[in-house]
Simulated assay, not measured.
Amino acid sequence: MKRNLAIFFMGMTIATMVLGGCGDKENISKKDGKQSESVEDKKTFTVGFDAEYPPYGYMDENGEYTGFDLELAEAVCELEGWELVKKPINWDSKDMELNSGAIDCIWNGFTMNGREEEYTFSTPYVDNSQVIVVAEKSGMKTLEDLQGKSVGVQAASAALDLLQSEEEGGQKALADTFSALNEFADYNTAFTELQAGALDALAIDVGVANYQIKSRGEGYQILEETLNTEQYAIGFKKGNQELCDVVNADLKKLTEDGTIAKLAEKYEIADMVTLK
């Protein structure tokens, strides 16, 4: 009798373990299914952006996030029936935000050149140059004039990558002539330092430079000699071709109906936009 009871309880234990294991697998399956949500099931579209990067993404006088890229993302969402979620991010943390699934893409004046192996990129939509901004009274006219000067740049930016690169087209040799290369979290802070005389120059995207100079008034100039030319694109997690293809198709529609041209005129970057 005792032997029969022992066998009975052993059988019950094994059955419980098997059922529990099946339940765990089912939960894992459901979790994985949620993580691998298809484009057809999407309800929201979360864009990661630098909130201090005008004219592409910034906070306006009403406290609302706006900019060329964010309005373009809104237009894509209208075509797809998605709700746009604007998520300001620390630019240093953009890869973590993207790879964790916290954002669907990086869409904010994002340079694709040299990063092609790290992301799945959309069709490029802006031709951009990296330039140097100095005070008008600085007397500096060429890149050679930066020798012995302190230069500011945004952390984790394309300009910083360029000034640290020893590859063809890189500008590390130029940066080595600076007295200092100072990194800032955003260009608003960097411009304040330039205005105060704590910096001699800024390495910055030309579109952002033009916006900052216009909004701050006279006193600054862009050197005619550029550091390089690059392209902006939307960065998706590597391998997320499905979502990238949907957005690319929408960009084509927005080009054809004139939406992109209107936004480019509004934000004064019509000469830089390549989707025409």
Rank of each mutant, 00 (worst) to 15 (best):
F110Y: 14
K30N: 12
K238N: 10
D32R: 15
D127E: 15
A158H: 09
N182A: 07
E225Q: 14
F110G: 07
D69R: 10
F110A: 08
T46L: 09
R216I: 07
S129K: 12
N108H: 12
M59L: 08
L5M: 04
Q241P: 02
A75C: 10
S165L: 10
E83I: 10
N62W: 09
E97Q: 02
G169Q: 02
L227I: 14
N248F: 11
S138G: 06
A190P: 14
K266N: 00
C105S: 03
D127K: 10
I28C: 00
V134Q: 03
K253A: 15
T16A: 15
Y125E: 13
N182K: 05
L163S: 01
N210K: 09
S129M: 09
S179L: 01
V151Y: 00
E37C: 05
K86H: 07
V131G: 01
F68V: 11
E136L: 10
C22P: 00
G23I: 13
E166W: 15
I103H: 14
I103T: 14
T229P: 06
P54A: 15
R3F: 08
Y53V: 02
E136D: 11
A75M: 13
E256M: 13
T255V: 10
L181Q: 13
A249C: 09
I213C: 01
L181H: 09
F178M: 00
E183D: 06
D257T: 11
G258M: 03
K252N: 08
E37Y: 12
I204Q: 03
